[in-house]
Design a protein around this nucleic acid. Structure first.
Lengths: 277, 277
DNA sequence: TTGACAATTGACTCGTTGGTCATTATTATA
DNA sequence: TATAATAATGACCAACGAGTCAATTGTCAA
């Protein structure tokens, strides 16, 4: 739908300048030249918009970088193409990149954070695969440090060119970082990030969300909520979780009931995952 | 005033968990066990609170790091002490460090941004001075890149240990980064950040710290302090600033007297800079 | 014990927000 | 042209935010 496109483009501009929280739906619709109601025809909520933006751009970015990395045959050029493609994406979608930087760890919307973390993990995986391909066994000990340093380079140099309106020579920047990466790979001997540490870091996200945890969260929510359709839905879903009796259609309906209630979004998310919808 | 202290401590906790915008004054006062009105007796606004927090911690941090850097005599240990002290501060005041990371480039308050930028510039200056001292002329071409890489290391590794509740071996981390720094300094040949680029970035006002401003700060401190060696030292230093009569040795001694008093760290830092020690 | 003064409270104002929905405008179909 | 279906509107709502201030409570010298 064209409206959706318009809203995404215009809102991105505003988010990049003022931040997500600080931009109201009213401002977005004014800027688009549409009514407030029209916004809610395209997006169920403001949160859904930012989530859509994240997905739209991160899928593109992830796919782009991955394509480059898997299709460069000359090892010599691998990191150059990686850096260049990364920074080039940032430059092309600088508004989105700015939003990303600004909102990095700020949002209290759990779905947002999880999404970002999962994309970040994909990015790390891509970098790791490059490091392993290029430097092989020799850097086994320091490969995770290398990945982090590369992320550090990208992060700090991105800030430089995103928030200063200075034209940058991406070719030179990429060459410069390729050299730094090679230098580190060749001469580093003291690792800090061990296999175990990585596992500890990654563990949380892989941590299976248990039925008990969801139940606990639901009880907490039920106490906090006032009498409403949403509350009743949560109670029913809780029973369903403890002892499945309802049909899939009903469960899906109940989930729909609560998915826009601020206290229930996360629960709804977990339940959808749990039920496998 | 004790209330101010209380509010700053408690609010920092909340900010670290939920972010500044997402924490209401009501929540802060509830958490402190005081009334909403009482909050506005200590702070003119919510913004003034975050500004006060920034100043309180950044002054301490900047002074601490600078002291370490200017007082390490053994070049071999310079970067180690720098990294260690930096990460140690982050660990000690991890709530504040988290707020910093979260609120980094949020643009809700101009004064906030300007303040952060000016502290960031001081930090960069400190790093640059170390790089110049340690590696001398040879790295003239790549020194700004080195500074940025060091900032990148700190940023990315800080994220790792701030947002994972994993106990970290700061000694190992520091050693690991020292090696990386040395490796880069020794082998990097392709600069990206030129003198001109730095000047373009720094172009925004680099407000000079005037004698008058230091005097003002000192008077303020003198009023707040109880009778003590530290207070006496500050008074003497103030006279010295107005009319130099004491020998360098005495001045240095006086500075040593006050450098660990929480209210004086900043003054001590400014004076060392001013006197050129 | 009194009363003047300061500290503290929390109900209140006023503005803004995300989100809704009865109403209106537009388009497609017959 | 008449009618049904769809798109779009914006006044409206409840909730919540920062900040205020008249009223209350606490303090302490006389």
């Amino acid at each position: 739908m064209a409206k959706k496109q318009l809203i995404m483009e215009k809102s991105l501009e505003l988010f990049a300048n003022k931040g997500f929280e600080a931009t109201s739906v009213q401002q977005i619709t004014d800027y688009c030249g549409i009514s407030k109601g029209a916004f809610y025809l395209s997006f169920k909520s403001k949160d859904e918009l930012i989530l859509a933006l994240i997905d739209h751009f991160m899928m593109q970015f992830t796919a782009d970088v991955d394509y480059v990395v898997t299709h460069v045959e000359d090892d010599e050029k691998l990191f150059y193409e990686f850096y260049y493609s990364t920074f080039n994406s940032f430059r092309k979608h600088s508004d989105f990149a700015k939003v990303l930087m600004k909102e990095q760890s700020q949002s209290f919307n759990k779905e947002f954070i999880v999404k970002m973390q999962s994309y970040d993990r994909l990015f790390e995986k891509t970098i790791l695969s490059m490091v392993e391909r290029l430097y092989g066994e020799e850097i086994e000990q320091i490969k995770y440090d290398l990945v982090y340093c590369i992320k550090g380079f990208i992060s700090i140099y991105s800030q430089l060119f995103l928030f200063q309106q200075i034209p940058m020579d991406l070719d030179l920047l990429s060459k410069s970082l390729v050299e730094k990466t090679n230098v580190l790979a060749k001469h580093t001997t003291i690792p800090f990030i061990s296999q175990e540490l990585i596992q500890m870091v990654e563990h949380p996200s892989n941590e299976e969300v248990t039925k008990e945890k969801i139940l606990e969260l639901m009880e907490q929510s039920i106490e906090e909520m006032e009498e409403s359709i949403e509350k009743e839905s949560v109670i029913l879903l809780k029973q369903q979780l403890q002892e499945p009796t309802l049909s899939t259609a009903i469960v899906k309906g109940l989930l729909k009931n609560i998915r826009n209630h601020p206290h229930c979004k996360w629960i709804s998310y977990l339940l959808r995952n749990y039920f496998g919808f």
